[in-house]
Each structure stands twice: as C-alpha cells, then as structure tokens.
C-alpha cells in the first residue's frame, strides 16, 4: 500500500543503501531504530479516554512526523436494539485528507477501510474483551467507540495507530453505574416511586454478584432492575478492565534478507512488502500474538517468517515497555502532580 510513488532510480538507491554494509538510511538511523515518539493522554476532555501520538516530529518546530489522535467514547446500548450483553468495542480509523493529499477520495476511503479492518479485527477480538462493559445483564451495556484520526502520515502508520489505540484505551474510564428498580409504594396504590438501589453494577468485574454479594440483598431482585443511574455525576469512573493487555503493533519492512523498523514514506515506497506483528504482553503470562498480516507484493519462505516472528517479539517488547512506562508517567502527571499543583495554589 505505497501511498507515495518514487522513481525506479530512487527505489534502487534506497534498497542498495539498506542492503549495504553497514546499512544506511537517509536519516542516519540504524535498521532497528525508531524515531522519537511523543505521547500525551487526556487530550480530548469530552471523551472517556484519549491520546495523541506523534512519531518522528521535529523537536524544534514541531513539523513533520506521523500524527494520530485516538479517543474512546462510551455510549449506552440496549440489548434488544442490537447491543451485545457483554458490551461491544468498535474501532474506526479516519484519515484526514491533509494526511494523504495525493489520494483521490475513493482511494482514501479504501485506505481508511483497510486500516479500520485491521484495528477493529484485532482490538474487538473476544480474547481482548474488557469485562466491565456490562451495565444491566441482559438489558443494557456500554458500546465503546474507539475513533482514530490520522492527522499526518510520514510512515509507519500502523505502529502509530496501535500505540495511540493502546494509550487511549489505557486512559479510558467507564462510568460507575448503579442499578435501580421501580416499586409501587406500599399503601399508596398506583403510585410508583424510585425505591431501591440494587448493588453496584460494574464494580465486581463480570457481575458474579450471586456468589460474592456481601450484603443481604435478594439477588433475584437484580433481574427486575429496569434502569440504572450514575451515583456520582462528577466521578469519571473506573479504568477499563484489562488495560494492561491492549496490544502494540510492530511493522517489519522487508528488503530480504534484511528487515527494518519505523520506515519513513520513501522507504515504505522502496520496500513495499511488510509484516505487521501485533503483540500483547500480559503480566505473568506468555507473550500473546494478537494479530499478524502480510501486506504488499512479494513472498517469503516459511523459515524467514518464523525468524521474523521471533525477532518481532523482541522489538514489540521494547515498544511495549517504553509505552507502558510513558503511560504510567502520564497517569502520575495527570493525577498526582495536577493535585499537588492545585493544592499549592
């Protein structure tokens, strides 16, 4: 999916440089170096979680670089109207026409569709599904919309998309809800009043209230719960379940026998074959491959692919660790430091 076209001479120049010893890249990086990555979470105040990422932005004037915005927004969906009992995750990628000025509208739509497919198929897979998207069992659930906007593309867009998605989902907070039911008030026939608030829904993960209900609530009443309320409107809610396991993507660009990471646009055009490897590193578990795609013309042997899968795991772990550290930092910056600053005023 080369979005830029370059001449044959330039293509061969870039390929020869990559294959020479030592390998040379136009910006002086080594084959497995990344450009600098900048990340900020919480950039969209109206979303439930958001992040902005840029790869390879010029540190002095802030120009260039691949830039992606991601925002997660939850909405209530009732199961009768097409919702799913355990909630849904829907991912959409849209590309700004400014990011791809050379593409016609139809081609841009196809590109968006392809990106959406890969992101959605990976992140909405049942094996990654967060457990706290259920509001009222069998009645209402959260629909989590993850929207990604590509503001600028200067290469390596898939890695940027998945990093942005992971950061936004890490940042996502699901509002706390409490189930309510309506009961006719005793003695006053015909009048219905809001009476009982039954249990805290969403807090106990997968709703196993039957077994662990600490109080003397009659659990059968939960079936009668017809609606829910937000106990605290100003509370942002609890973090999305399983935020440690959202995957990262690593794109291996191939000029057999070498492969390189974080290609810029011209390198992508010169080396059209690439493999996307999407890894997740759950704590205290083996690394998980959450997705794999070969993109672009060309073939590989099975041995080459096996080698790439193993190497990709190391690269992905590096990206994952760095991103994890940064996300923790962002949490500290936005919660602890912001509070301290507020107190000092």
């Amino acid at each position: 999916m080369a979005t830029t076209s370059i001449s044959k001479a330039e293509q061969s120049y870039i390929q020869t440089a990559l294959l020479s010893d030592p390998p040379l890249r136009t910006d002086g990086r080594s084959l497995h170096d990344f450009r600098s990555v900048a990340l900020e979470t919480g950039i969209a105040p109206l979303a439930n979680g958001s992040a902005r990422i840029s790869i390879g932005q010029d540190p002095h004037d802030g120009s260039g670089g691949t830039e992606v915005l991601a925002a997660a927004k939850v909405e209530v969906e009732s199961v009768e109207e097409g919702g799913v009992d355990a909630g849904r995750v829907v991912c959409t990628v849209s590309c700004s026409p400014a990011a791809y000025p050379q593409l016609a509208t139809a081609a841009l739509e196809d590109l968006q569709y392809d990106m959406t497919t890969i992101v959605h198929q990976t992140l909405s897979h049942p094996s990654l599904h967060p457990k706290n998207l259920r509001i009222l069992p069998g009645k209402k659930s959260w629909l989590l919309n993850l929207d990604l906007i590509v503001l600028a593309d200067s290469g390596n867009i898939y890695d940027a998309l998945f990093m942005a998605a992971r950061a936004a989902l890490w940042d996502t907070k699901i509002p706390r809800t409490r189930a309510v039911e309506y009961k006719a008030r005793k003695g006053v026939p015909g009048s219905a009043g809001l009476s009982a608030a039954v249990g805290k829904v969403g807090g106990s993960g997968d709703m196993d209230i039957d077994e662990e209900a600490p109080s003397g609530f009659d659990t059968r009443q939960i079936q009668h719960a017809t609606d829910f309320e937000l106990p605290d409107y100003w509370d942002e809610g609890e973090v999305l379940d399983g935020r440690d396991i959202w995957p990262v993507c690593i794109t291996l660009n191939l000029v057999p026998p070498v492969h390189f990471l974080d290609a810029i646009l011209r390198e992508e055009a010169a080396a059209p074959l690439k493999i996307l490897l999407i890894y997740s590193f759950p704590p205290s578990e083996k690394p998980r491959v959450q997705g794999m795609r070969m993109l672009g013309p060309g073939e590989l042997t099975l041995e080459q692919i096996k080698d790439l899968v193993n190497r990709g795991e190391h690269y992905a772990r590096d990206v994952f660790t760095a991103l994890h550290t940064k996300l923790k930092d962002e949490d500290v910056r936005r919660n602890q430091k912001a509070r301290e600053k507020f107190e000092r005023r």
């Binding site: 493999i275 998980r288 997705g291 794999m292 795609r293 073939e299 590989l300 099975l302």
Partner: peptide
C-alpha cells in the same frame, strides 16, 4: 508464503 492472516490470542 504469499500471505498470513492471523487474529486472536495465540502464543
């Protein structure tokens, strides 16, 4: 090999 298409959780 001309294409690989994998989704889901595998090690």
């Amino acid at each position: 090999v001309s294409s690989i298409w994998q989704t889901g959780n595998m090690n």
